[in-house]
Structure formats: C-alpha cells, structure tokens
Amino acid sequence: MADRVSMRAAYGQALQAYGALNPKVVVLDADVSASTQSSHFGKAFPERFFDVGVAEAGMVDLAVGLALGGKIPFVNTFAFLLTLRAAEQIRTCVAYARTNVKLVGAYGGLSDSFDGPTHHAICDIAVMRSMPNLTVVVAADAVEVARLVPIVAEHDGPVYLRVSRADVPNVFGDNYTPQLGKGTVLRDGGDVTLVATGVMVERTMRAADRLLAQGTRARVLALHTIKPLDRELLLAAAADTKAVVTVEEHSVIGGLGSAVAELLSAEAPVPVQRVGLADCFAETGPYDALLDRYGMSVDDITAAAHRAIALRR
C-alpha cells in the first residue's frame, strides 16, 4: 500500500504557507492547536493566532467579528465541537450574515477513534449542509487538503472544511488542482458509479479494483465539495452507468448520500446505495477496524455496487 501521510500535518503546513502570502489570514483555535495542527501557523505568526481556550461557540463569534473587520479567519477545533457546539453561531452569524469565516473541522468522521463516540463527527456534514450560504468541503488526502487551503481562503464566503486526523495514502498526484464545486473522475467505467468523499476515496479506489477483478467496471468520482454539488458530473455519471453508490465517513443520513439522492431523484432517478455509518453512534477502537465494523469496509462498497447494479432497470 502507498505510504500514509498525515492530513492534519499537511493542513497545518499549508495554512502556515498560505498565511505567509496573505496577511489577512488570522487563525483561531480552542485549545487544541497541537491536534488540529493550526499550531504551525501559531508558531510562525503569533500575532495573528488566537487561542481562545475551551470555548468553541465564542470562538466562532469572535471570528465573525474579525471577518467584519476584513480579516479571513480560519477557525479550528474538532469537527464535532465546531459544528454542534457552535451550530447556532455558525447558522446565524456566519451563514445567514454571510461573513467570510472559514470553519475547519479537524478529526472528521471516526478518525479520533480512540477518544470514542463523544469525539467522532458523524453528522457534521448533515448539519453544515442544511445551512444556506455555506460551502461544505471534505478533504480526501494530504495533497487535496493542502491545495484546498488557499482556495478556501480566497473563496468569498463562509466555508466548512472537514479534515481527518488520520494518516492516509495520497490518492491525488502532485499536479492535482481542486476547484470548489467540481469533482474529479478518478477512474472511468460504465457499469456503476462510485461517488466518494474524504478519506473514503482511497477505500473506494480499492473497491473499484476489486470490482474490476470481478469484471465490473466502476467509474470513481472524488467529490470534495458536498455543497454545492457538481451536478453535471453526477448527472452524466448517472446517465452513463444508471447505478450509483455514495461513500462517505458520515452517517448515511443527511450527508453526501442524501445530497446525491436528492439530486438524482429530481433529475434522473437511478438506484443510489449509500455507504456510510448506519445511523448509530460508533465505539472506541482502532481506526481502520472501526471503519470496517461500521459499514465502511471495501467489502461494503463492493456489495453496495452489486446491489445498485441489481436494481438497475
């Protein structure tokens, strides 16, 4: 298997690098900067780094004020704390007031595996996606998160960016340039479409390999932007393959799976099987074992592909 690279380190370094270029960037953290790795920025630019202590709701409002003053604040803490503890701050003062705040949820999905379900973020995408004006982005690997940082910073408007704690194999090569709202075809195929986001992209590629060995040619789409969805890419894939599987490290309710189901039901109804956490709280354990246990194994993806194909009319 390819070498695993720390996504959070890549994020931290990218933020620091971009911070050197853009003096408008300020960074906030709620006493977890060593974990989120916003500490890289903090060490390089202490005058533009604010550790507000264990106070996530207040941190988001503080960032709103900084944005009103013309800054580009990056707000960092664990994804569950950011999106749940500060949900109303985000909805009212960031999304509705359309302030230029960048919300970065660290330790997305089950990646803080040993801290257990209190620290898992399994409904953050659903919560963020429900809010008008928010752009919702999930990074797949170290390359993607590093490339996304400047793009998110320069996008005029609020963004939620989910980053994983895990060390993950790089899916994207050095020449990859993501674009907000656009997905990437990682592999072409006509039998079924596998749409994946976040660290599940790598597992999905493995599932596609396995399917190929079984004679099924899967198209693999990597989708970092959950909102706004890349309609064209999805509609074309649905039209070509007539069977879709969504793969995400999130509840099967409200996230990528729902977004794709909503779109296709309105525009091109085809079978959509959702791979993700089956609407339950997970438990404590090793990360890969948790993903396997809770419905996000490579086998789960291939099984879903077969189900989707079987339903195809």
Partner: peptide, 13 residues
C-alpha cells in the same frame, strides 16, 4: 480500554 468491544470507551459511557 480503547479496544473494540470494550465496556471501557475512550470517554465514559
């Protein structure tokens, strides 16, 4: 503690 199937979760349950 901190293994799969344990009664002792990472945080108290």
């Amino acid at each position: 503690h901190d293994t799969l199937n344990s009664r002792l979760q990472g945080h108290p349950d």
